[in-house]
Design a protein around this nucleic acid. Structure first.
Lengths: 342, 342
DNA sequence: ATTCCTCTTGACAGCGCTTTCAAAATCTGT
DNA sequence: ACAGATTTTGAAAGCGCTGTCAAGAGGAAT
């Protein structure tokens, strides 16, 4: 483990003072061309890389942006993280991630770690920590919250109700009237909003809302399976399913497949998020696209702007229905009858 | 942005010297019980959190483990990252990620960033950087390489050939003889190994190897689509496909679906990796499981051990064929004929 | 009571860098 | 060539923490 070259090594090599080296590195003040050259050459020769921690200590910043996700391996967060990564790419900042696993206590622990590491700013995705905690943090550093609307904070989110409305309306337009909904956990505001969008679409089309067609999941695949199984078990009649996210739609799809119910032939299926993999699903999944990567990107740009004291107006983020092959026109009544048999 | 409490604040509050506070925090030396109490109380009262950067500077370490992935949003790396995260959870270390995007130059840039941030150790996944570069790094810090075997480095990888062998043999055992292979990029050693495993299985079963049945992809979904399309376009006859990874299998599946070729009815499909989502694929994908999360975990434990100067023997990592519903017995010749029509 | 030990404690010098501040160097105009 | 204005430069203090070192406090032993 050989010793790292320090700034004074460079200074000695270039025959100038450490201050001067610092100045050419940061461009903090003008330096005579000849000396600057010498310094740059020395840096090159010694292959010098500033010690970020020392810089941080001296300047009171870490060039680090903390990012709270709920689950780093989830495809949904993966896309957002990619967005954050991209936005930070050409800047001196680097992201550092920590996962909350949808649990307030774990998220709090994650926040502690990031704050302890002196991140300069924070991007919090789908937080489940109390509002006050975030409001407290925002006094210390720039914070952008994704997927939650909190007074007094910079928030970034999509119109979940609108997205769900469109997804549901699409099914209605295809002739479906008995549309089941696999909802997200009711502890998630976005899940509630999606449920509301679903209900609004039904209402606008004069389709009565049937609570028996709504099952709550937890946004993960297995809960989609369970949801369909429970619907089927209790003999619910439906010709379409609107799932509150793609992962549950995936689960629903397998459950249907297992029962020999074909998508979209027997049941149409709509998801929400439009994960990268959804276009490669079979059948390719109709889904309400949420611009996840862009959201990560916008959030990161936003905190960067705040760090520079600039103001920033994020581009409006909107959902868009992506129609693929998991939805189709409602078939003749006979098909509905067949379904009844399960 | 209120000022952070420092160690001296705590010292003043507790009526002791900074050294004593440091000793209490790190347990570096014994401290009189009464004073320790006072310090702990003061820490509590002021809600003090040590400045990691200052600690790092003073101790010459950053408590950070750098992780090079190729694409943070990829489900495959997501699982590994989760493993790393888990392994580091109860330690003072925290991971910091950077992506190489399968390009040596970008990976080099990512390495630079991590080294500049003074990571204490490095986990490198599927690196495409020259061997020498890694050998150079290992002189400076503990390094564990995943998915590549390099003399003189701590490497962690599965037996790709063996895995591919089993996946292919499974198809053979189901009666298939015309098995197409969607290979990974030949620049990846693992892709080569998988291709070899595929060939070995064919050979052991006396099935002649037909180069026309092998198409190269790039490990991403679209290339799976393309692969199938090109096989079909050139009139290749096959009753099964072994894809070098799940993502390409997903792509292949859609392409088949588009042509009305059913999996597994008309064509059996085997993937490699067994991504989390593969069990929710429809049909649920038969795949060669690679214990990605565990690999991330083992790699992280390994570097931790190295940091502590301990030796570590990673548990053997092996692949396992997970048979699901995308593969089935070869059907009567008639089905093969049907296929010919495409 | 005196000396010698052992523990506990605080002063202080860094870690590698930035950032005043004032001295040195250069340039202006006359 | 000289005073004054303007750059350019280096010395030095400090960012918050650790770790060495020696002084101070008690105890034990004589």
């Amino acid at each position: 483990m050989r010793e790292a070259v320090t700034l004074s090594d460079v200074a000695r090599e270039a025959g100038v003072s450490p201050s001067t080296v610092s100045r050419v590195i940061n461009g903090t003040a003008r330096v005579d061309a000849s000396k600057r050259d010498a310094v740059l050459k020395a840096i090159e020769r010694l292959n010098y890389q500033p010690n970020i921690m020392a810089q941080g200590l001296a300047q009171g910043r870490s060039l680090t942006v903390g990012v709270i996700t709920q689950e780093i391996s989830s495809p949904y967060y993966g896309e957002m993280l990619r967005g954050v990564e991209q936005a930070l790419e050409a800047t001196p900042y680097h992201p550092i991630f920590a996962s909350g696993h949808w649990r307030a206590d774990q998220e709090e622990a994650a926040l502690k770690v990031l704050v302890g590491r002196r991140v300069d700013a924070l991007v919090v995705m789908d937080s489940s920590v109390p509002e006050e905690r975030l409001l407290e943090l925002v006094k210390k550093m720039p914070v952008v919250v994704i997927g939650r609307q909190i007074e007094g904070l910079s928030c970034l989110s999509i119109d979940n109700a609108q997205g769900a409305y469109e997804g549901t309306r699409h099914l209605i337009e295809l002739g479906h009237r008995r549309i089941a909904h696999i909802a997200g956990p009711h502890s998630h505001p976005d899940a509630i909003e999606r449920l509301e969008g679903y209900r609004a679409a039904l209402q606008d089309a004069d389709v009565p809302f049937d609570p028996a067609l709504v099952v709550e999941g937890d946004y993960l695949e297995p809960s989609g399976v369970l949801a369909v199984e429970s619907l089927l078990a209790r003999g619910a009649l439906f010709t379409a399913i609107f799932a509150a996210n793609d992962q549950m739609a995936y689960g629903a799809n397998v459950a249907l497949y297992r029962r020999g119910i074909r998508v979209p032939h027997d049941v149409s299926l709509v998801g929400f998020d439009d994960l990268l993999s959804s276009s490669y699903f079979s059948p390719p999944l109709t889904s309400v696209r949420q611009p996840s990567q862009e959201m990560g990107w916008e959030a990161a740009r936003w905190v960067l702007a705040m760090l520079e004291g600039k103001s920033y107006t994020p581009r409006p983020l909107s959902t868009r229905l992506i129609v693929r092959e998991s939805t189709t026109l409602l078939r003749s009544p006979s098909s509905r009858l067949r379904l009844q048999m399960f």
